[in-house]
């Protein structure tokens, strides 16, 4: 458990260099093993990219070009019609979802940082039990809360909580608390030396001072991880959206699904829409991917 706690912030650590003695032993057999390795890696790469290929190719086709016989071919004529139509239908929901995911990720990360600090460094009696109860909240099937949740949220809407995105922000913040707390707790446990906090206490620094002046300044890597994680899960959520919003105020997953489940699917605009709806999270992964992998390692493999 501790063995894997270290690569929290760091990108994936580089592989261990083989000593020269071992490297010299690379014989013909080793060379062919390496070839097989690369061929396998490449084969899997292609297999994984098949759905992406289909999405991209189909999204650029004209309606007349989408026939079963040529479905796997490149477009006869590259057309942006599908993309234009998808943009018309999804630009509003996309904007709403950006607001929702950014706000939800920021707030639950801040709560996670405060909680993680307490659970790692400023513990109270029973903190372990409370922490475990928090963690269980991460694993519950949301089906088991969603019926009463819908009732509560309807009441909250009557009391003035904005419908749609506003409601979803509250829900994502709350159900994001467990994972963010876990990630920050593990992060602080390994990166903030208790001695520094003890020294601060001796100097009369209270908890807030310790948090603001010692802990928060070194928290950026933790925030990167929780922000990515929460942004992605809020963005990709469908169940909460389905129960708590409608097509006029819901996030992009909701609207995309309604478009794609029609009777006569417009494949070009559906595929373009699916790509549009995936671009923000894909961009996050591509730009910040190495931190994300680091975060996966620490957040989940404890």
């Amino acid at each position: 458990m501790t063995a894997t706690a270290s690569p929290f912030t760091a990108p994936v650590p580089p592989p261990v260099e083989r000593s020269t003695a071992v490297r010299k032993r690379l014989t013909g057999r080793a060379v062919s093993a390496r070839t097989v390795r690369y061929l396998l890696l490449l084969a899997f790469l292609i297999l994984i990219l098949i759905p992406l290929y289909v999405m991209v190719v189909t999204s650029f086709k004209t309606a007349g070009d989408i026939r079963p016989t040529t479905a796997w071919n490149l477009p006869e004529r590259w057309s942006l019609d599908g993309w234009a139509k998808a943009w018309d239908q999804l630009s509003g929901p996309l904007l709403r979802t950006v607001v929702m995911a950014v706000v939800a990720a920021t707030v639950s990360s801040m709560l996670g940082s405060l909680n993680g600090f307490v659970f790692a460094k400023w513990r109270f009696p029973g903190a372990n039990v409370v922490f475990t109860l928090f963690l269980f909240g991460m694993f519950i099937p949301y089906q088991a809360v969603i019926i009463p949740l819908q009732e509560i949220m309807l009441k909250a809407n009557d009391l003035g909580l904005p419908k749609g995105i506003g409601t979803l922000i509250v829900v994502h913040v709350i159900y994001g608390i467990p994972i963010c707390t876990l990630i920050f707790r593990n992060y602080y446990a390994t990166t903030v030396p208790t001695e520094i906090l003890e020294a601060g206490k001796v100097d009369g620094a209270g908890m807030w001072r310790s948090y603001l002046s010692i802990v928060l300044p070194v928290s950026i890597p933790g925030f990167v991880v929780t922000l990515i994680w929460q942004f992605t899960s809020a963005w990709n959520d469908f169940l909460f959206a389905l129960f708590l919003t409608n097509a006029n105020n819901g996030p992009v997953t909701f609207v995309l699904n309604s478009l794609a489940s029609g009777q006569n699917p417009d494949y070009a605009s559906n595929m373009a829409g699916a790509l549009l709806a995936s671009l923000p999270t894909l961009a996050v992964y591509i730009i910040l991917g190495k931190y994300f992998i680091g975060g996966l390692m620490s957040g989940s493999v404890k």
Binding site: F238, L256, M271, A274, A277, T281, Y285
Partner: peptide, 14 residues
């Protein structure tokens, strides 16, 4: 890793 960034809903379309 990239399929993980895609929502089940978007992946469901394809």
């Amino acid at each position: 890793l990239f399929p993980m960034a895609v929502s089940f809903v978007a992946a469901g379309v394809v």
